[in-house]
Simulated assay, not measured.
Amino acid sequence: MKNKNIILENAKQTILAESNAIANLINFLDDDFKNSVNFIHESKGRVIVTGIGKSANIATKIVATLNSTGTPAIFMHAADAIHGDLGIIQKNDVVICISKSGNTPEIKVLVPLIKNYGNKIIAITGNIKSYLGTNADFTLNSYVEKEACPNNLAPTSSTTAQLVIGDALAVCLLELNNFSSNDFAKYHPGGALGKKLYLRVRDLIENNEKPQVAPTTLIKDVIIEISKKRLGTTAVIENNLIVGIITDGDLRRMLKDNSDISKLMAKDIMSKNPKTIQVDDMAITALNTMENNNITQILVENTNKYVGVVHLHDLLKEGIF
């Protein structure tokens, strides 16, 4: 138990150390940050993000965040850059160079080469007086007082600080670009996240059956219709309008309360004025409606015309849950 307590205490201290380091970054925000964002926003090129070691790993994540929020970006490893990959950089590109010390040999070789190309350099460094910090066009301070590592060696708080600055850049650019949820959907078409942003109700029901009965349909035939269409429910339709819904639950309650069902009709057990959704509504809206009303099916309309049923299983199948 003692070891377990030590583990939890170490974890808490790590999280506290990194959270404090991140919070302190607010004190370093200055005109260089603002000018960096504006320069990238007005640039006609891409953002090239480079680094070495753990900073290179952070660079790849920043690239991914920029790309997914509407700012074209490419990763360039600092070591590879000085061995042939400098061709990645084009005339109008902006280079973000990440280094905790700002004095690594690769960075010292790379910076003058980039400047000779005429490209602007944005430094993210924990040492603004370093070679990188003093030679960059814009310097963003990612200084941390101490790493979360007990030996103050392993990059922990420092890399988290770099990552947060990258996120801050991306979000500021997102706002300047008026990047909307529709734009986000364009860049995230796959997976549950993308589906929440583009999948519509009509996409869910296209292969579903369309169970329906009339108010005067006998219960025996209602049961047959629900069983046949395999959606656990049926709409009750009169004059082409939805007037009710019958679910498996309604049938169970009916059987519990009635010993003779031979003369019962749909209108006798249906729930009136059921919840409906429009065919062009988003699939996530269907999920929210089901959750808010504690139901597992919802009837779908096209204006006032009944067109089908969305079941919770349809949403589960698409990973929207």
Rank of each mutant, 00 (worst) to 15 (best):
V164I: 15
L176D: 00
L218V: 11
V236W: 02
D203T: 11
N182T: 14
L169K: 04
Y187L: 14
A185F: 09
L169W: 06
V171H: 04
R252V: 05
L199W: 07
E175Y: 05
L197W: 10
F184R: 05
K146D: 07
N207E: 14
S227F: 03
T216D: 15
L169D: 04
G249S: 10
T159L: 06
A235C: 13
I226R: 06
I246N: 00
K220H: 13
N151W: 02
I205M: 07
T216Y: 12
I223Y: 06
G166Q: 00
A170C: 08
A168M: 13
A214G: 12
E206W: 08
K228P: 07
L241R: 14
E225K: 09
S181F: 06
K228I: 04
A148W: 04
L173R: 00
I226L: 10
A235Y: 04
E238H: 08
A235H: 05
S180F: 08
A192N: 15
A235P: 10
D203Y: 09
E225F: 00
S158D: 08
D183R: 04
Y143G: 00
R230Q: 15
I242F: 06
V222M: 07
N178T: 05
L231Q: 14
S158F: 03
N178S: 13
A170T: 12
S157P: 09
L231M: 15
I223N: 04
V171A: 08
K229D: 11
T216N: 15
V213E: 09
N240K: 12
L193G: 10
C149V: 04
R252L: 07
S180T: 15
D250R: 00
A185W: 06
K186D: 07
Q162P: 01
E147I: 08
R200E: 15
G232C: 09
E238A: 07
E175A: 05
N207I: 11
V144F: 03
G249M: 00
I245Q: 01
V236S: 03
D248G: 09
T156P: 05
G194D: 10
L218A: 06
N240R: 06
D248N: 14
E206D: 12
L163Q: 03
V171C: 05
